[in-house]
């Protein structure tokens, strides 16, 4: 290795002539050829739609000469946004998703962290079994998971309902108060193992020597876990939180499936369902404005959370 390295530093200046433009690397044309296969579709299918949605959200459809006139699309300023913010259904969907996120995300991440810490101790046997069991739901599509759970919620088919009834309970997983938490349970089931694995691989990367001193001082596994391990993997916990916030605001498949068996989920249950319902009614400009608002909220929350935690932890 050192031989190659010294040879490289010795010879590079000689060939530097045609490379000097960008400081010793390959020519710009080559770099562009490496980047284009990704950036072309990235621009076309990521950036252009974002720009297009923003553009559409500032347009309105008007009609000439009353109700039966021809319609035309024109610039409407913040008219669509004003409509979004005056829409009671929009605020109701935001409220549901906010409640969902405040409860589901911490519960899920707490379970994931607990599992990751237990898997990282010498306490436990059967580690690979537990790891695979927790991670398996990640292989299940959200729609399929919601269909599976909807059978477990259904009063006719569910063995869970049967068991609870046998001990004298009357569960109604699809009732007006419970259905939001039934959806939250599907998300928790799906994503706990994934988050656990991110935290677990961060834990695995910590050098064992870091614990040695603490162990010699007689620290328990418990205090090593909470005082040493958790602070070190804080960046992974922040990362999983941000991904969870994004996921929560995008929620669509799980409630859409539960809606097929429960009348307590409206077509505008989550912000995303509302956007889709509005778009299905051909009101694309309004749907675009809703999508933009959801995206902005997502950005503000995830960046806000990262800023907040990085200041607190000094990361």
């Amino acid at each position: 290795m050192t031989d190659i390295a010294t040879r490289a530093t010795r010879v590079v200046p000689a060939t530097g002539g045609r490379r000097r433009l960008n400081g010793g690397g390959p020519r710009m044309g080559v770099i562009v050829a490496f980047l284009t296969p990704f950036f072309l579709p990235f621009v076309l299918f990521y950036l252009v739609p974002i720009g297009y949605a923003i553009g559409q959200s500032f347009m309105v459809v008007r009609r000439t000469g009353g109700q039966y006139g021809t319609s035309y699309t024109t610039f409407g300023g913040f008219e669509q946004y004003a409509q979004v913010f005056q829409n009671g259904e929009f605020w109701a969907s935001i409220g549901r998703i906010g409640l969902f996120g405040i409860v589901q995300v911490p519960v899920m991440l707490f379970i994931a962290l607990t599992m990751a810490l237990l898997l990282d101790t010498p306490l436990l046997k059967l580690k690979s079994f537990f790891r695979i069991a927790a991670f398996m739901p990640y292989a299940v599509p959200g729609v399929i998971a919601a269909i599976m759970w909807s059978f477990l919620y259904s009063p006719q088919l569910s063995p869970v309902v049967d068991v609870l009834k046998a001990v004298g309970l009357q569960p109604d997983f699809l009732g007006p108060g419970a259905v939001l938490w039934s959806a939250a349970n599907v998300s928790t089931w799906l994503w706990t193992g994934y988050n656990m694995l991110i935290m677990y691989s961060a834990l695995q990367a910590i050098p064992q020597e870091l614990y040695e001193a603490a162990k010699l001082d007689g620290a328990s596994n418990w205090s090593i876990a909470w005082r040493i391990k958790v602070p070190i993997i804080a960046p992974s916990i922040v990362l999983t939180t941000v991904f969870s916030i994004i996921g929560t605001l995008q929620l669509y498949a799980e409630p859409a499936v539960l809606r097929q068996i429960s009348s307590n989920i409206s077509s505008t249950f989550t912000p995303n369902m509302l956007a889709y319902a509005v778009a299905s009614g051909n009101n694309y400009q309004q749907a675009a404005a809703i999508s933009v608002v959801i995206a902005v909220i997502t950005f503000v929350l995830s960046f806000g959370f990262m800023r907040l935690t990085s200041k607190k932890a000094g990361l």
């Binding site: 960008n22 950036f39 990235f42 990521y46 739609p49 994004i246 995008q250 675009a288 999508s291």
Partner: peptide
């Protein structure tokens, strides 16, 4: 190494945070 490398990388990182469902309708 090239000019604008970090800028391109942060655009991509921003892309990670874009909800893909928000892209579907446009």
């Amino acid at each position: 190494k090239f000019r604008g490398r970090e800028f391109l990388f942060s655009v991509i990182l921003g892309g990670v945070l874009v909800p893909t469902t928000a892209l579907a309708l446009p």
